[in-house]
Design a protein around this nucleic acid. Sequence first.
DNA 1: AAGGTAATAGTAACCGGTTACATCGAGTGG
DNA 2: CCACTCGATGTAACCGGTTACTATTACCTT
Lengths: 346, 346
Amino acid sequence: MKKKSITIYDIAREAKVSSATVSRVLAGNYPVKEETRKRVASIIDKYGFQPNAVARSLTKRETRMIGFVLPDITNPFFSQVFIEVEKYALTKGYALLLCNSMNDSEMESKHLKLLAERQVEGIIIMGGRINKSAPDRVEVNELSEIMNSLPVLMINGKIEGLDCYSIRTDEAKGIELIINYLVSIGHEKIALLGGIEGITTTDIKVEAYKSLISRHHLPFVPGWQIYSGFDISSGEQAMDKLLRNNKQDLPTAVIGINDMVVIGALRECGRRKIDLNEFSFVGFDNTNLAEISNPQLTTVSHQYSEIGRKAVDLLLNSKNEKHKNKDVEINPKLEIRDSCYEMIGN
Amino acid sequence: MKKKSITIYDIAREAKVSSATVSRVLAGNYPVKEETRKRVASIIDKYGFQPNAVARSLTKRETRMIGFVLPDITNPFFSQVFIEVEKYALTKGYALLLCNSMNDSEMESKHLKLLAERQVEGIIIMGGRINKSAPDRVEVNELSEIMNSLPVLMINGKIEGLDCYSIRTDEAKGIELIINYLVSIGHEKIALLGGIEGITTTDIKVEAYKSLISRHHLPFVPGWQIYSGFDISSGEQAMDKLLRNNKQDLPTAVIGINDMVVIGALRECGRRKIDLNEFSFVGFDNTNLAEISNPQLTTVSHQYSEIGRKAVDLLLNSKNEKHKNKDVEINPKLEIRDSCYEMIGN
DNA sequence: AAGGTAATAGTAACCGGTTACATCGAGTGG
DNA sequence: CCACTCGATGTAACCGGTTACTATTACCTT
């Protein structure tokens, strides 16, 4: 970048105006005589001049960049959210710096530091954390400090004691959609697999599951709610554990904490040569895996594009609208595909 | 961002030194008396001062940002490359601006323009394009212009007539690995499904396929090489087409242009209730889908982390090493999993 | 003692824009 | 005809760092 590039001054000289006028032409919202405007504009185009955004950022104190921190963009849930955020941000002239923390808190704090230095106008964070764990406190301090200078928003996450912006799908309602649906097609024995106790998204779903089971007066069997994790092998393990029950003690429907867990559960059934029709499966998140899976999963979908829009708006308007609620909830939708069977008779 | 933040001058005043000294302490590589250094450093920490990277970028003319343009980060191949690039870039203090073009050339050019304005130090582009098509020429011009001011690197892609940096997996060798392997376990009838004629990655693979088939003196059946596309439904369609052949005219092994196509092919078999053991399947890319798939796919793997490292190095050292080769090829590796069967007898 | 050198720190210009303020001429109303 | 307003444009300070150049001091050398 040591090569000197063309500047507003070069344009000004050639157009025989001052740099201020060129700047005004570029901004487009100041009074400039039409004749001058044309002359300047033609020279701008002649050189294909593009103003240096760094210099502009420095004076205007706005970088039009947003930082996005998540554990791993390879995870389709995160990438689906990211893409919607980016799409909407672009329409507002904002660009996104994507940071993968790989669930490494040291890396995450390195990223956060870099983002703050780079003067991003806001930071979006995704990825579940265990509540109240010790290393979390470090993070809380770090983030609180950052929040003094710029807005922070968490999508589907919550850090205890951190009063940042938040936007989340109403996951309890998602569980309700699933269970109502399963009941409507005749299921009464419903299991919930996966997740980790203490991580918000899991806790919310488990609680909703219990409450819905009881609301529908269905049998609650403790062995049907199995914690394990969020990935495929967690799904396999949980399904394996479930299948160790006696045949008559098995559920007829299995909800996964997310799509990946269900894919693991399906695979475990495959390994054991169990006919997939023996169970109805429902996922959560409606990631592209749900379509890729065979059978395609019935799952709860986030409203991704709405999340994207709201996230950006909330973050960028945070200055003006201090009064507004810092927490936004978004309704999920049930996406019905091919992984559930109606219970006949019984 | 209108809030005035603490600057190097504030630190200087409190430490009773000039701003230059503070700057030197921050840089760490200038002669500063140990005593002064300590005093300044303690004040820096006291306020948790972080220098403004925008201002630094302006003077040093380096933003330590790289632009990354791809069609859709949701695609696991792209996200896997991205994550490795980002990981390595971070160690060099670089951050990545991720731009999803959604295969929309207008969006892409908007992104490229923004990236150039933002003074990124280089741009990485992924995503196949059809050679020599008309709209491509616009892109060539646009990119050529950009290449005057900053280095551009394509990963696994090539635009006809554009002399940018390039790094790609030796896909012909990948096909060779697959076919040698299939032959070694007894296959002689091998099909290749998916891809679009005219897109580099497809052309390379198809050519290698034909040449390997002939080198092994295997039968070449035109109907066994079927273009379709790169996604799951393309895989389904291609497999459907293949299966319309008479049973005795069917291959025993099926190579997909990528993992997704194989997953589509598997699904098509499922739909037709064909035993998956009737065919051996091999994918390409070793995306996480290959592991998620059931059965897990034998596939050709890119050396993702090496691609990440080389890409960043090539881009950032492009100034110094004009002489060096602009094209880097990286060897693929065969990842053997569960989707191939040995042919016995015959 | 005069001259040379190295370490340390300050001065001020510079990066490339933006914008408050000043200037100037033309039109306008009284 | 004067005072005033308003549109068009220029001047220069500013954003927050970096760094070439300069100044000062101390320490050697011969």
